[in-house]
Structures are given as structure tokens and as C-alpha cells.
Computed example of a mutant assay.
Amino acid sequence: MLDLRQICRGVAPLWFDFIRDWDRTLRARNYPETTRYSYLLAAAQLDRYLLDNAARLNAEDASADPTEVQRGHVEEFQAWMVATRSASTALTKHKGLQQFYRWLTEEEDLVRSPLERVRQSKTEQKLIPILGDADTAKILATCKGKQFTDLRDEAIIRVLFNTGARLAEVTGLTVGDVDLDLDSLLFHGKGAKERRVRFGPKTGRALSRYLRARVGRRGFGGQALWLPARGVVPLSSNGVKIMLRRRGRRAGVADVHAHRWRHNFAHEWKLAGGDTGDLMLVLGWSSDDMPRRYGASAAAERAQLTHARLQIGERI
């Protein structure tokens, strides 16, 4: 569960009131927790930036009241994000603030959004490297113990590797979403779209072992699938991110995150000659653009293998 007060730490009282009410709307519209966190954080960070730079930006009113924010304030914030973080981070904040100010206009607290004429930051489309068999084997080797966290972490990693599911979909699984008779998982994807995806024997074994270890632990009676090492609050997406980084460091594998397995899944599917339409169904995509983007970092490998198979110029 998101800690709204922690996200909004240091913001002005009126900003907090607006952000809290906006979060109620996001929850009512069934936005995933990861999306809500990203949106709410963008609004809170804008106010903290305005508070820190109120005099320089002539933003005293805006730092106290989000309806007083002007286009220039947002552009200054965006430029600061590019300089101190990255263009992609600035783009994420822009999208979150677009939604915040769209909601403020819906609520009739504003007539026009200050982001109406603010352009998004240009970003380079970086190729995300896949996380293949060799590195995944090293990471799984760190989960060979019998401790609860070893069994849990192996099950999470195998689900990510075997299904290519999104991080939020895996962390959002409930006990009822696991079907050990049909060897499948029910994922709750973006836009409240559900899909059932099969898993293989090794993933099934890891899930079965974890479910047995889960029995009797604190929080065991709840529906959330992934329980913490201590306490009763289910493992969040951020908790899984931290776990994956920790496992990656122990395995000597850099930059371990869930999305790399999603790219790997798309690459392996294409490498095996799988149908693009089927891939879209399995990974929960609705845009034809997604199959081109995912696994792009390994496209050269696929092209070389196809070249070798076709033997162009070598048949005579």
C-alpha cells in the first residue's frame, strides 16, 4: 500500500490536499499502484522544487497552490529534471503532471492546464539488453538455500523469466491467480485487462515449493501471493526491485531489473519464429509498435542467424 504522506513529505498543505483527492480518483479508476506512485511523486516533486526555488522563479503562489502554477514553472522543473536526472525521467514527470492538471481541469479548479503548451523532453530510444540464460542461471544460483526468501525469490524470478510478465503484474498476483492444475497464471494487466499465461515445469515446481513454505506465515490468510520476510504487508513492486538488485549484486550481474526479462522473452519468441500476434496476446500488448521495440537490442543476433540459415550467395 502506498504511503501518501511519505510521497508528499515536505509539500505545502494545499498541494497535499489536492494530491490526496487526486489519488482517490486514481484508485476509483483502478490505476495500478506503480502508476499511481509515479503520478503522485511527479506532483510532489514539482511542489518541492517550487518551494526550494520560489524566490528565483517568482513562484511563491505556485509553491503554495497547484492552481497557480504557470507554464514557465513547469518548463524550469522539466529542465532541472533533465540536468539532474535524465531526459527519460523528465518525460515520466511530464506525463504524470499532464494527468494531474487534466484532473484539476476536470474538477473545474482550473480552466486550462499549464502543460498545454509545454513540450515533452526529447529522449533517445535506448536499447534495453536482454537478460538471457547464462546471467539468469547465476541469479537463480543465489536462491539455492532453503530459507523462505530463497524459495520466494526463486519463484518470482522464474515467473518473470518464464512468462515475460510486467513487474506490476507479477507483484499483483493473488493466491487464486495461480492454477497448479492447468500450470497457468492469471495476470491483471494494464487497463484492467486480464490474460491467462502458461508456465513451465521448473516454474511450476518453484511456485509449488513457495506455496508450501508460505503456509502458516504471518499474512498467510490474505490473498496477496508474495509475503514479506517479516511483517504482514505483501511484497510491493518496489520491494521486488530491491530484491532483484540485491540478487544481481550477489550473482555479479549488473543492472538486474524485471523488464529485461520481458525483453528477453520477446527476443526468444522471435528467435524461435513465433507469431507476432500470439506474442502480443501472451505479453498483453495492444499496440503493433511494441513487438518492434521489445528485444530490439538482440535484433542483430536474430538477423545473423537468419542470414546463416538462408545461405544467400552460398547455394551455387
Rank of each mutant, 00 (worst) to 15 (best):
R5T: 12
I7V: 13
R9P: 09
L14I: 08
L14R: 14
W15K: 00
W15L: 00
W15Q: 00
F16S: 06
D17G: 13
D21N: 12
L26G: 04
R27Y: 05
R29I: 11
Y31R: 15
L40K: 05
L41M: 04
A42H: 06
D47A: 03
Y49D: 09
A59I: 06
E60G: 10
D61N: 05
P66H: 06
T67Y: 06
V69R: 00
Q70T: 14
E75Q: 15
E75A: 14
F77V: 05
F77I: 01
A83D: 15
L91P: 02
H94N: 11
L97P: 03
Y101L: 00
E108C: 05
E108N: 08
S113M: 10
D135L: 10
D135F: 08
A137N: 14
F148Y: 09
T149V: 15
D150N: 09
R152V: 01
R152C: 02
E154T: 15
I157M: 14
I157S: 08
R158S: 07
V159A: 14
V159F: 05
L160Y: 04
N162T: 03
G164V: 00
E169Q: 05
L173F: 07
T174L: 10
G176Y: 06
D179V: 02
D183E: 13
S184Q: 15
K190P: 09
G191V: 12
K193Q: 10
P201V: 03
R205P: 05
L207F: 03
R214S: 07
G216D: 04
R217S: 07
G219V: 03
G221W: 09
G221N: 12
L225R: 02
L227F: 03
N238P: 06
I242K: 13
M243D: 08
R246A: 13
R247E: 10
R249H: 13
R249P: 09
R250S: 06
V253H: 07
V253Y: 08
V253T: 01
V256L: 04
H263E: 10
W269E: 07
T276D: 13
G277D: 01
L279F: 03
L279I: 02
M280H: 12
R292H: 13
Y294V: 08
A298Y: 12
A299M: 14
R302M: 05
R309Q: 13
R309G: 09
Q311F: 04
Q311W: 11
I312A: 11
